[in-house]
Nucleic acid binder design. Structure first.
Length: 564
RNA sequence: GUCUCAGUAGCUCAGUAGGAUAGAGCAACAGUUUCCUAAACUGUAGGUCGGAGGUUCGAAUCCUCUCUGGGACACCA
């Protein structure tokens, strides 16, 4: 069902095989405006080759261009505009969707390859902020998209569960902590203790030493330190899992920073063997002057390891355990330099698979135009936002559909959907100014809008007692009013491909909005349930819209309630 | 200072392996429900694509310079 390819093959012959079909296929474009046609072929570049005016070439080609799938061919200036046969194509598309169901749009180019995705990665004992939301939601959608393209995704939550802050936290807990309080509200209480530590440390610098010494004990395997650390970790994870459940995100691995503690010596040793380690200001670094990057710090002057060391160990571990085809890191753009260095060091070590690693950066969540900081307490908590959004969805339901059966469940799906969609609909690199108002908007280009479109379509099928098994109903209309919808339906796979190639879920988000818009227009214009000869074909179209909307939403991590 | 990302309608953004008259949503204004869920649909208005050069049949898109804003740049992650 690749009409571009068909057209390219025909043009290849008509142009005396002077330009390859693949090249021609790349030249074919979609007209800006559907009234101009479904496919367009600009003839400007042919002018030199054929030594004729482009307009004349277009004219000549149009006279020779014939195919049963083309309804007509028009010439506008140097453009060859092709109109597809609406009836043939529409029936083909609709039947394909109804037969393939949720498999529609799937691709195979990733067949079998494993893709590790480093995502979410919140810090233990700290609140799950809006910043972590981005990594979680983008990573989750990329996992789903990559899977749709044949890969096997492995979602890794690289937890921030190690570091000097745990020494500080243990110190603070020993001095002012309370078991019950922590159990009741772990993250909030641990954060309070962490903040208190910093406040007290300003007047009592010896606390810093205590913190360091507790972290040393932790590293040395001190039982008391270790059990406290384990406890903090467990309690934090319990709380995170509540959020992950709301977001409907699961992980294949929770191997965080602590997991790599015993795997770093090997990296340092390897670097030494390859003579890449250089001493600089008492620290051990890998020089990256040829790569025009600042040196990468491997060991501090006191011999302790660093972030980069840990990530090197993690990269190697992932290669050896998953033998990834791609290794993705969904981490904020602030860390771009770090990942450039990381990949450069691995390449220097002779690991050609370093090229399979990709940093997937994204813009920041800003508050008043500035980065949000945990210290100033100016951090927005994701859970509060989600709760608020669900409440708002609930309110809308009471207003618009009070007789709905499972209100609470639907409110959750819609409320959470609004938040996720808001994050995914734009290019990842854009910074987002935090605005509850924008996030909880349910009209226009939003998650709820798409979900609503889906619910409407489902409602029609329900009213019609549509039997989805009837995949070959009589299709007998002109497919004129439905053409816009059909032409969007057939673009699904293309949007998935783009999303996968660029690791960009917004491609799918935009697609799903396009489809919802086309459907809503159709819905307003045509009375679908009208009982006439063409009713069955309209219902088949509506059914195929529900299939694609639902699958598109799924790829973004949103649910699709049948009623709302 | 170096590197990096961004600058398109009042606001939020699409569009960037060069193509036709630069598109949506929100907000504003005017409409649409005896009829399939109005979380919808229709219409009006809104633009020096930050600026200046260049490349060419053609530039929001590519190159150079420049202005503005965000971010990163050695012992945090």
């Amino acid at each position: 069902m690749n009409f571009k390819k068909d057209l390219a093959a025909i043009l290849f012959e008509l142009l005396d095989q002077e330009i390859s079909a693949t090249e021609l296929e790349l030249m074919i474009e979609k007209p800006k405006n559907q009234e101009l046609g479904d496919l367009a072929f600009p003839c400007f570049t042919l002018a030199k080759l054929k030594r004729k005016s482009p307009n004349l070439i277009a004219q000549e080609l149009s006279e020779k261009l014939h195919s049963p799938t083309f309804e007509k061919v028009e010439v506008v200036g140097a453009y060859l505009n092709i109109f597809l046969n609406k009836k043939t194509v529409s029936e083909e598309v609709v039947i394909e969707i109804l037969q393939q169901q949720e498999k529609y749009g799937a691709l195979e180019f990733g067949k079998g390859g494993q893709v590790t995705i480093d995502m979410s990665s919140p810090n233990i004992a700290k609140p799950f902020s809006m910043g972590h939301l981005r990594s979680t939601v983008i990573g989750n959608s990329i996992a789903l998209i990559v899977e749709k393209c044949g890969y096997q995704p492995i979602k890794i939550n690289h937890l921030g569960d190690w570091g000097t802050q745990f020494g500080k936290l243990i110190t603070s807990y020993q001095l002012w902590g309370d078991v019950e309080k922590v159990k009741q509200n772990p993250i909030k209480e641990l954060l309070t203790l962490y903040i208190k530590f910093h406040e007290e440390a300003e007047t009592n610098p010896s606390l810093e030493d205590q913190g360091r010494s507790w972290f040393k004990k932790l590293e040395d395997g001190d039982e008391q330190a270790l059990s406290l650390w384990q406890w903090f970790r467990d309690e934090s994870l319990k709380e995170f899992s509540r959020i992950y459940e709301l977001l409907n995100v699961e992980f294949d691995s929770l191997a965080g920073e602590a997991f790599y503690n015993d795997k770093m010596d090997r990296i340092v040793q390897l670097l030494e063997e390859k003579q890449l380690l250089v001493e600089s200001n008492q620290a051990q670094v890998v020089e990256l002057t040829e790569e025009q990057l600042p040196p990468c710090l491997i060991k501090k002057s006191d011999g302790a390891t660093l972030y980069a060391t840990r990530d090197l160990a993690a990269a190697l571990y992932r290669k050896e355990n998953y033998n990834f085809a791609l290794s993705l890191y969904v981490v904020g753009h602030e860390q771009s330099l770090h990942f450039k260095q990381l990949i450069a060091v691995l390449e220097k070590m002779g690991f050609d698979w370093a090229q399979k690693m990709h940093h997937i950066p994204f813009g920041m969540m800003l508050k008043d135009g500035k980065k949000m900081s945990t210290r100033k307490g100016k951090v927005v908590l994701l859970e509060e936002v989600l709760t608020e959004s669900i409440a708002m969805a609930s309110h809308s339901i009471e207003e618009k559909n009070p007789n709905l059966a499972n209100k609470a469940e639907v409110a959750k799906q819609v409320g959470v959907g609004a938040v996720i969609f808001h994050d995914l609909k734009n290019n990842r690199m854009n910074d987002i100014e935090f605005s509850l108002e924008d996030m909880l908007r349910f009209e226009g280009e939003t998650g709820p809008y798409v979900q609503y479109s889906y619910a409407r379509a489902c409602s029609i099928l329900r009213k019609a007692n549509w039997d989805s098994e009837l995949q070959t109903a009589a299709y007998n209309n002109a497919w004129d009013k439905e053409w816009k919808v059909v032409s969007v339906l057939m673009e699904f796979s293309h949007s998935i491909k783009r999303a996968c190639e660029n690791f960009d879920p917004s491609q799918v988000a935009k697609y799903v909005v396009d489809l919802a818009q086309a459907f809503n227009k159709y819905y307003a214009e045509v009375k679908i349930l009208e009982e006439n000869a063409e009713q069955q074909s309209r219902l088949a179209l509506v059914d195929s819209v529900t299939v694609v909307l639902k699958e598109g939403l799924r790829l973004l991590g949103l649910e699709a309630p049948k009623e709302m």
